[in-house]
């Protein structure tokens, strides 16, 4: 474990707490002008369920196991809140990104490009590829609604920063322990790349107190 990865995981936790706070506070998934994509949250739940199949078989540390359990539980809880508790405020007509394309694409690629053709390894690889593009329905929704509440932008900032810091963690681990993992490196770079234009707007507008509005 290194500081970069620890802070990255904490930013991931922060993003989940921001989302839960927003949903509890506004008691909905659609604030005045910003909406949370159910598809993205469902994709994240899938990512954690397919990635942590080794939850009991592969004990790394108490931290690792605790975080895995938290990510699985929180992502399922968010899906539950969106699907049942705040269902009335969830408008599927705005969540129009074709999620089946990213799921199909990630599954196909995981069957072709993986480290071992075993069920667990292919599921793990699928979760890595899926996580890279899971934010697309959410970003797509932002482009449709054209603007987002500030708290939603902080959610996206934390989420984007988490994987961005993992990139730094991988550079550090390559440099210190010759750690190489092409699959997570490339997927992580794609994932962080998807946030670039969001980060640009976030830093140039939201942090200056302006509303988050897409040009």
């Amino acid at each position: 474990m290194n500081l970069f990865r620890l802070v990255a995981d904490l930013m991931h936790l922060v993003s989940i707490f921001i989302l839960l706070l927003k949903m509890q506070k506004t008691r909905s998934v659609a604030g005045r002008c910003s909406r949370i994509s159910f598809k993205t949250q469902a994709l994240y739940a899938t990512v954690f369920l397919t990635r942590y199949t080794d939850l009991f078989a592969n004990f790394q540390s108490l931290y690792n196991t605790t975080m895995k359990v938290f990510f699985i539980a929180s992502s399922l809880y968010i899906v539950f809140l969106m699907k049942f508790k705040f269902k009335a405020t969830n408008d599927p007509r705005l969540d129009t990104f074709k999620a089946q394309y990213v799921v199909g694409g990630a599954a196909a690629l995981a069957l072709i490009v993986n480290y071992a053709f075993t069920v667990q390894e292919v599921l793990w690889t699928f979760s890595i590829y899926l996580e890279a593009v899971a934010i697309l329905p959410q970003l797509f929704m932002l482009t449709k609604t054209g603007e987002a509440e500030v708290i939603t932008t902080h959610y996206l900032f934390a989420l984007g920063t988490y994987r961005g810091l993992y990139l730094v963690n991988w550079i550090y681990r390559y440099w210190t322990e010759y750690y190489v993992d092409w699959i997570v490196w490339i997927a992580g770079a794609v994932q962080t790349g998807l946030y670039c234009d969001f980060f640009y707007i976030y830093f140039t507008k939201v942090l200056k107190g302006a509303k988050f509005e897409l040009p």
Binding site: Q60, M67, E121
Partner: peptide
């Protein structure tokens, strides 16, 4: 390959 070693990252 050694990459199928136990995944130690979240």
């Amino acid at each position: 390959e050694e990459n199928t070693r136990k995944h130690d990252e979240l």
